[in-house]
């Protein structure tokens, strides 16, 4: 059974359709990358799956539990608050612009949610935070504040912050788009390492080579629909649709 199932998701803003029937499955241990032009609805899709936006219609289930399903009058029916919360705790999200808490030290950014959401003891939360920092090669920055770090370091802290909650499923929304090109590599490496550890991930990215290399499954979105979907070979080497070919040709040239 897939870890994440989405069926026929619809979402519009002020009458403009942004998601127009998106369906996808993510298996445990799988990495799904989402590519597509700007404005195609990639962020909106992630925001719907992380409960930052509500879908208008469609089904989402996570770890076998239903988050939302389509009701009788074709509108979305969400599960009760407790279920939504349980599902939220299975899921982590890494933002494009990090969204670290500026008034907390690096260590506290990571340990705060485990302590106050999961109820872990301070010592325990900080010990695992230190472990994650070590993994992110930031052990020496534990007492720094976000404003004292480079973009790449901030993004690694935010990944550590998400991992500290032990999510079953981790979403990334263009995790390198706010970074200088020379810092992009360090973040992509972290994600590759997580993939090697079989972390289940959904990554929206404009880094095509990365999207191809790290993925088990690639989704190409345009105008709120999935135009092409399959293994990296299918999508990148055996492209079917003209729309995808046109999008990928720009990447192949460069």
């Amino acid at each position: 059974m897939p870890l994440l199932t989405a069926r026929n998701l619809y979402k519009s803003f002020d009458g403009t359709g942004v998601l127009k029937g998106i369906s996808l499955d993510v298996d445990k241990g799988e990495v799904l990358t989402v590519i597509g032009p700007s404005g195609s609805g990639k962020s909106t899709l992630l925001r719907c799956m992380t409960q930052l936006e509500a879908v208008d219609r469609g089904e989402i289930s996570v770890c076998g539990e239903t988050l939302v399903k389509t009701g009788e009058n074709q509108s979305a029916v969400y599960s009760d608050r407790a279920a939504c919360r349980r599902i939220a705790l299975h899921i982590g999200l890494v933002f494009q612009n990090f969204n670290l808490f500026p008034h907390f030290s690096v260590l506290r950014n990571i340990a705060e949610a485990p302590m106050h959401v999961l109820g872990k003891k301070k010592a325990e939360a900080e010990a695992s935070a230190m472990e994650l920092l070590k993994k992110m090669e930031l052990s020496d920055k534990a007492d720094f504040y976000p404003c004292q770090l480079s973009g790449g370091q901030q993004q690694r802290v935010s990944i550590a912050r998400a991992l500290a909650m032990n999510p079953d499923l981790l979403f990334f929304d263009e995790p390198t788009s706010a970074l200088d090109p020379e810092l992009t590599g360090e973040i992509l490496k972290v994600i590759r390492d997580l993939a090697a550890e079989h972390m289940t991930m959904v990554v929206v990215t404009h880094e095509m080579a990365f999207a191809r290399d790290v993925a088990d499954q690639v989704v190409f979105m345009a105008d709120g629909v999935i135009v092409e979907q399959g293994t990296p070979e299918q999508v990148f080497a055996n492209t079917q649709s003209e729309r995808t070919k046109a999008f990928l040709s720009r990447f192949n040239e460069s």
Binding site: Q51, L52, I91, N99, F101, A113, H116, A162
Partner: peptide, 14 residues
């Protein structure tokens, strides 16, 4: 306070 702060907190389960 930027919306991203609320969103980060929300996703973390606060």
């Amino acid at each position: 306070v930027p919306a991203g702060q609320y969103e980060a907190a929300r996703v973390l389960g606060f």
